[in-house]
Nucleic acid binder design. Structure first.
Lengths: 217, 217
DNA sequence: AAAGCTACCAAGCAAGTGCTTGGTAAGCAA
DNA sequence: TTGCTTACCAAGCACTTGCTTGGTAGCTTT
């Protein structure tokens, strides 16, 4: 076996000012599932496990154990295992978009807005805001094409923000779609090598470095 | 189920002038396993399947069926399933290094050498030269840390070539290690969106675009 | 010819997998 | 009180998984 790590991990909730009320608002608006409901708790547990061990190596028994129920009881809340993955991805997508939109809005200049996008996605990837964001890329192939379409539709707005920020920062004649894709890969891959630590680089510093590579000066 | 595609796929051998003799030389030198031996044929089949469906979703029965033997017979050649993955990664690493070294050597200027690195890795990622290269990243977590170390040691020279090419092209005060990591992520992610086609962009054009983003002018 | 090696088969085991079934207890509404 | 809904349990089914075992045919070496 691989991907060690077992035993219950304390649920890491998004921390930071306002994230709680932001979630509540989204729940009230029906855009997000209440994380305190049985479904919500299962989705959070699934997100963490899929993130740690991967979808295929996570069993429904693992997920059930995380919230303290038996495996069969999961299928009272979800039709099958893949529906859990699909729901996780949809939740993550919605929340990531709202969060990034806020960060971009708070930025002053075009360059600052691009930096906000980069930092926002870095935070998501490294689990500081949205547990399970990396699943969107890492486990994309585990989703049936039908469910992929659903998530892709939800993702359109997210990508629109990115394209706008890139075009504004790098000029209209730059290929925003291409740069976004290169950036997405570069940022996602930090998941595999970057470890935020007290001594080393912070996520903010990393965001600056990335910004300087993709948009020099 | 997901990741459709079944049925035997014709073995796609690396094509291109000299690749055959290059392989033969590496086999003779004991650096590569003969692709016509039972072990070699199993490794090639495994590489394709791991690439298509992922390691966890590929069964030893799948691999065995690809080469026309029964599943149990696999364990005459490999101790366990993970050893197959480890061997595939080692084979891929060795071959990718030799290939890239050749491409870099043939290039004239520092900028051309960086382009050669980019194109070489793009070709590897998209299966034009080395079936299974993407496994190195996509299935990294499926490897035990002990086997990870083995592959990492083999990979050192490969990364050294990259760092040299980046430093030469972008100046010694650039952070070659960081840029390499961003590039690796950006290039690997093309696996998810770039489809070389007659109408659209070629890999060569893509390499040029990437070069211009990471090393403008 | 004898001995050993390589490459496989045939059969199956033990563990784990997603998911189903029938039932129960608690809360709430009529 | 009655009936409905939500959230779960207990048990297990049907299937898949990696891997094991004992054996055999053919080739090569001595």
């Amino acid at each position: 076996m691989v991907v060690q790590s077992k035993g219950r991990v304390a649920a890491r909730r998004p921390s930071g000012a306002g994230s709680q009320t932001l979630i509540s608002a989204l729940v009230a608006a029906g855009e997000l599932i209440d994380p305190d409901s049985p479904r919500g708790r299962l989705l959070n547990a699934a997100a963490r496990l899929f993130d740690q061990k991967g979808y295929a190596r996570t069993t429904v028994r693992d997920i059930a154990a995380e919230v303290g129920i038996l495996s069969g009881s999961i299928f009272h809340h979800f039709g099958n295992k893949e529906e859990i993955l699909s729901c996780v991805m949809q939740q993550v997508t919605v929340y990531a978009r709202v969060r990034m939109a806020q960060a971009v809005e708070a930025a002053a200049s075009p360059r600052e807005r691009l930096r906000a996008c980069i930092l926002s996605e870095l935070e998501a990837i490294h689990g500081l805001a949205i547990p399970g964001f990396s699943i969107l890329v890492l486990e994309w192939r585990s989703l049936s094409s039908q469910n992929q379409k659903k998530v892709l539709r939800l993702r359109e707005d997210y990508e629109r923000i990115w394209h706008g920020a890139i075009a504004a920062a790098k000029g209209p004649k730059s290929d925003a779609a291409l740069i976004r894709r290169l950036l997405q890969g570069a940022l996602m891959h930090t998941y595999n090598w970057f470890k935020p630590s007290a001594k080393g680089m912070s996520l903010q510093q990393l965001a600056d470095e990335v910004l300087n590579v993709f948009s020099p000066q």
